[in-house]
């Protein structure tokens, strides 16, 4: 009798805490089958392909990966990929942070307008935006003419087909993502913390670097990883604005696919790109968990 009571008790307690479930586990089955078949298996087959086809079959399974990492040419391309991603991430942060700060602290009712203007370019195709930069940076383009008139460049030259144009295009596409990641976190930072610092005698710069910036690190990390990963995976900007001077891993995959059909090698390059992305995601998860534990 006394042994029976706790059992009944715990059952009665457990029942209201278990929420009503409309959907059973079986509702997941169709999408699992679909993604298992068209997402997991193809990516798995891609890994096998990079280890077994072509020269990997004769020269050992890791042949393509060793070639990618040790060959001077491909090593240079990996370095270029990381360089472009790091530079555009830093540029997005420097260009975007003031905008995010203005939106959260001063924009007031204009905030909605700015958010709209940041999101609006997503309605246009990436080709349109890249083409727009070509129009502005061509030899007789508006921006080139302006730079010539101001004496920044000695004569009107074609500024598209330069690394400069690639960075311009990447920052244009990705800065809004950085800004929206930062505003999401900055909104939660209490403005009174900044005011207290000022009242207690900190300078504007001191307040920014010792209060505002550290408190918004979460948003900065999210934005940076997002921009970094997307840059690593994009090739259109490099293809259309780089003029062959900026060759990254994803652009090489595109070119390899169009020109030489080395299946195994293309698969290995894709997997390398995937590994870079996974490392970034793991870093992000670690970072977010750490800061989540603190609060």
């Amino acid at each position: 009798m006394t042994a029976g009571i706790p059992v009944v008790d715990s059952d009665a307690k457990a029942r209201p805490s278990r929420p009503y479930r409309l959907a059973g586990p079986s509702w997941v089955v169709p999408v699992l089958l679909f993604l298992g078949f068209f997402f997991v298996i193809p990516l798995g087959a891609n890994i096998l392909r990079s280890l077994q086809t072509g020269q990997a079959a004769t020269n050992g399974p890791l042949f393509y990966y060793i070639k990618l990492l040790t060959d001077a040419y491909y090593g240079g391309i990996i370095a270029e990929t990381l360089k472009v991603a790091v530079i555009s991430t830093v540029l997005c942060l420097i260009v975007g942070y003031p905008v995010a700060y203005f939106m959260v602290r001063f924009a007031g009712r204009w905030n909605t307008v700015i958010v709209f203007l940041l999101i609006a370019p997503l309605l246009t195709s990436i080709i349109m935006r890249t083409f727009g930069w070509r129009v502005l940076l061509a030899r007789r383009g508006a921006l080139t003419t302006l730079l010539f008139d101001w004496g920044i460049i000695p004569r009107p030259i074609n500024l598209a087909d330069e690394p400069f144009a690639v960075y311009l295009g990447l920052v244009h596409v990705l800065a809004p993502f950085m800004i929206l990641s930062i505003t999401a976190v900055l909104q939660k930072v209490d403005v009174r913390l900044e005011e207290s610092a000022r009242v207690l005698g900190a300078s504007a710069f001191g307040t920014f670097f010792r209060i505002t910036l550290p408190l918004s690190l979460d948003g900065i990390a999210t934005g940076c990883i997002l921009v970094f990963v997307v840059t690593c995976g994009s090739f259109l900007t490099m293809l259309l604005l780089g003029g062959g001077k900026v060759t990254t891993l994803s652009l090489l995959i595109y070119q390899q696919f169009n020109v030489a059909q080395d299946v195994g090698f293309a698969a290995a390059m894709g997997n390398l790109l995937l590994i870079i992305g996974l490392i970034c995601l793991a870093l992000q998860a670690k970072f977010l968990r750490r800061s989540g534990g603190k609060s």
Binding site: L43, A45, N46, G233, L274
Partner: peptide
């Protein structure tokens, strides 16, 4: 785990997904 799997395709670069799917669907 399943939720992460359903969200995963967005983190795979489209060029990698496209390449993998093309060869798989060709087979």
């Amino acid at each position: 785990i399943v939720s992460n799997l359903l969200l995963a395709p967005v983190t795979v670069p489209a060029i990698v997904l496209g390449l993998a799917l093309l060869y798989f669907l060709s087979s």
